[in-house]
Design a protein around this nucleic acid. Sequence first.
DNA 1: CCTAGAGTCCGTAGTCGCTACGGAGTCAAC
DNA 2: GTTGACTCCGTAGCGACTACGGACTCTAGG
Lengths: 155, 155
Amino acid sequence: MKISEAATASGCHLETIRYYERIGLLPKAARGDNGYRDYTAAEVQQLRFIARGRDLGFSLEEIQSLLALAEQTNMPCGDVDRLARAHLVCIQARIRELRRMADELTLTIAACAGGACGGCAILGNLQASAELPAASAVTAKRRQRAVAGRSSARS
Amino acid sequence: MKISEAATASGCHLETIRYYERIGLLPKAARGDNGYRDYTAAEVQQLRFIARGRDLGFSLEEIQSLLALAEQTNMPCGDVDRLARAHLVCIQARIRELRRMADELTLTIAACAGGACGGCAILGNLQASAELPAASAVTAKRRQRAVAGRSSARS
DNA sequence: CCTAGAGTCCGTAGTCGCTACGGAGTCAAC
DNA sequence: GTTGACTCCGTAGCGACTACGGACTCTAGG
């Protein structure tokens, strides 16, 4: 199976498949006489496993661990369970962060009557907190965590 | 005010301030005789505005727009409102995505009794969906959006 | 057989929002 | 005078891709 077919069958972008191979998440694919990569059904299934893991929000590093665990025949359930639970905790924390943002933003938007308001409540909110001495200093670390990747969530 | 003081006062990391200047989000700071950057209270306030915007999950690009809007004396509320609303919609979409992940993960974890289960439910879930022909192909786009930045949310 | 167009190869650079590093210069206190 | 803290600058790294360019190969139509 050629790479474009593997891409279609797995739901991974063609360039992503090459990327996974490059970083060692996938084993190096067999090559045909022409040098083209040749994928087996098993490899496509592994790609789907990865895609599914990404869908569930696992990092590539975590997926690599999961793949390694899945390959062991004795199935060490505890490790998998721990990884999944830890991951769930992270997701829940992010949901809380985002909800906090959403709530705050909702309030701010609601406070703005729209139209030609002299002191815009939204900018006002941003500026008011800016005038408080270093209130946001505490949140600096949190900011990095909470917000990372947001912009790519909209591209 | 020196850069380290501005960093403390604004809650932004020192290197982040330099970064903001480099990418043009902040105007180039005045320099003392020694070449050190010298910040005014107004500039620190602008930094706090930025930090606050980041806290609310705005991208630097959006913050630049907000800063530009805030500088206009006639306060064009509509633009700000539109930006904030669009941003809120994005945040809410992300919350839904994360909740979907969390629900699915919770179910999967619950299905695993733990210990020495022969067929681990968590890996099973990942693998079962991997065996379905290209079900995840549809979600490829969504995956990129939903998950971006997750790993940095844990670092 | 020739040619056009599609597919594949590879390496590299770009994305976002920082963070970290190294080597040099500067400043304040002892 | 010397130490240690601070600042300067440019560059590289992170994660998870995505895009690009130039070379090669394959396939279908004329």
